[in-house]
Write a protein that binds this DNA or RNA. Structure first.
Length: 290
DNA sequence: CGTGTTTGACCCGCGC
DNA sequence: GCGCGGGTCAAACACG
């Protein structure tokens, strides 16, 4: 018992960790918000985009609400204090699209890199250690989106194995870590609930699948329609959204579209901007503004 | 028995 | 340097 640090945080302690009002707020990375569905529309329809290749050339079209976080340039020292990103940056068109994105171009800078997809979990600890000593850990580009769901782990067509769960600071809900079970696939995802609205699940994907979806088969054409790795992302999210739309329908989430629900959506989007539930997914170079 | 989950321990980066 | 918090590992466990 040399150190207790934060290990072994009991569930009862989750609540004890929250309560701080000065939450980080730098979700400067692509963020898709699926919290409100408009029936069984597809992902691209939700985007209101027909030219998918054009979509790849972010910034997104006018149908997509881009939180002003993408325009806010935080100096590095304000990494945890991008505090003034507040509700007035809500997506301007919550009715037309529930998708928000930020700093997408950074993502594509990432994408343009030759991302080392070597399965890290197959490397030895020594290799990992050596790698880490030689260079900072390189993060895969990440996408996050919100989904209103009763279940934490949404079915997205891939098989995932949970490898960890941690208490999240400022949230009573734990964050779960999943890894794609495919041997050569290095994709990870994190799932956590919004602490202001427990019905909203925030899913963050990291990496790219190196294999087709086990259940999608050839039905997924987005990966080919959309050139580049971004297409893979989009196809994954598109699929997830499709699946989830079905889930929402079955749960009755889509039965109404009152303005109050839109308000909920806006608030939630603002929350993510303000409180930075996903603050850690901001690529460091985005914060440093090279 | 194979597969997936749970959970305490460990490692690392970062801020102070 | 130290402590905090995020991320990962891996043994134990559960389940079909």
């Amino acid at each position: 018992m040399e150190n207790n640090k934060m290990m072994g945080v009991k569930k009862e302690d989750y609540a004890a960790n929250i309560g701080s009002s000065s939450l980080p707020s730098c979700n400067n990375y692509p963020f898709f918000d699926f919290s409100e569905d408009k029936g069984s529309l597809g992902f691209m329809e939700l985007l209101g985009v027909q030219d998918y290749n054009h979509l790849l050339d972010f910034p997104l079209s006018s149908h997509v609400s881009v939180p002003q976080t993408s325009a806010v340039k935080e100096p590095p020292e304000t990494k945890k204090e991008c505090s003034e990103v507040t509700n007035n940056q809500q997506p301007t068109t919550p009715n037309s699209s529930s998708i928000s994105s930020a700093s997408s171009e950074v993502l594509y800078d990432e994408q343009n890199k030759t991302v080392d997809l070597a399965p890290e979990h197959q490397k030895t600890k020594e290799q990992l250690k050596a790698k880490k000593t030689n260079q900072k850990r390189q993060r895969e580009p990440r996408f996050a989106f919100m989904t209103k769901s009763e279940v934490d782990h949404l079915e997205d067509g891939y098989r995932w194995r949970k490898y960890g769960q941690k208490a999240v600071k400022n949230s009573p809900f734990p964050r779960s870590y999943y890894r794609c079970t495919s041997v050569s696939c290095n994709v990870k995802k994190r799932v956590e609930r919004s602490f202001s609205d427990p019905s909203i699940v925030v899913t963050t994907y990291e990496g790219q699948h190196t294999h087709p979806s086990p259940v999608m088969g050839r039905s997924n054409n987005f990966g080919t329609v959309m050139s580049g790795s971004a297409g893979n992302y989009m196809s994954q999210y598109y699929h997830q959204q499709q699946v989830h739309v079905n889930a929402l329908s079955s749960l009755g989430f889509l039965s109404s579209s009152s303005s109050s629900r839109n308000a909920t959506f806006s608030q939630e989007t603002a929350l993510l901007s303000d409180y930075g539930l996903l603050q850690d997914v901001v690529p460091s170079h985005m914060l440093k503004e090279d």
